[in-house]
Every structure is written in C-alpha cells, then in structure tokens.
Design a protein around this nucleic acid. Structure first.
Length: 116
DNA sequence: AGACTGACTGGGA
DNA sequence: GTCCCAGCCAGTC
C-alpha cells in the first residue's frame, strides 16, 4: 500500500479508496473521513462516499464496514435493500442499533494506525 | 464553462 | 448538544 498525497499527483482516487476498504478487518469498521485522511485529503470524506457508491454490487469490497464519523449507517440505502448493511455487520459480530454501530469507538479501525 | 449534487467532516457560533 | 458553512472529488445538466 503506497501513500497517496493528492498534491501534484495524478492518480485514480477510487482505486486507492477500494484498496483501503478491502483491508478493513472483519468485525471492524471505519469512517469515510478516516479513509480520506489516510489518503492525504483534508476533507475528502464526501469523495470517499461518492467512490464507494460506485462499488454498489461489487461483493469484493466490504463497503458495509464504512460508516460515518458517528457510527451511523448512512450508506444503507445504497445496498440491495436497507437492512442489508446492518445484517452484514451483525453477521461479522458488529452490533447495530438504530442504524448506528454499537461501541463504534472501540471497533473503529484507523488505517493510519494499523498499516505501516 | 458554471452550478449543483452526494454513502462526509471539522470548526466556529 | 445544535446549526451553519466551506472544502474535498467526480459526475451530471
């Protein structure tokens, strides 16, 4: 995994996002902003969400492990059906209540901390 | 070309 | 805690 610093570098932002998302461990979650920060963007969270939208239907990318900074499943409506995202997380041992990940702070996986 | 939009976020009021 | 606002990327009109 290489560092992505946006300044001056021409690169496919989407692919970088996908690579990071694929590395999120089962049973853990992360936030859009965490991924953006790791990729070197100040406020690229929205761009990350936009990129993940393009992965809809791609089962090779665990997009359900990405939630917003409050642990809310804001992207649930992009899945085959609204409950799909929560079901996937529950199946991995992540508890979800009211569209929000329980104990989000403990399960939050930060790429900058866990990767070299 | 310009203006919006969206699976967002941090900071200030 | 709430509300507002600018900034990020790529696509659409």
């Amino acid at each position: 995994m290489r560092r992505y610093l946006y300044s001056g570098m021409k690169h496919n932002f989407f692919e970088e996002v996908y690579e990071v998302v694929k590395l999120i461990p089962k049973g853990r979650v992360t936030a859009y902003g965490d991924i953006a920060a790791y990729l070197g963007l100040r406020s690229g969270a929205r761009a990350v969400g936009w990129a993940l939208k393009a992965t809809a239907g791609n089962h090779n990318i665990p997009a359900h492990r990405v939630v917003n900074r409050n642990g809310q499943l804001t992207g649930k409506h992009q899945f085959p059906y609204p409950e799909y995202m929560a079901e996937m997380l529950e199946a991995e041992g992540v508890k979800v209540k009211d569209d929000t990940v329980v104990a989000f702070d403990e399960l939050r996986w930060l790429p900058a901390n866990e990767l070299l």
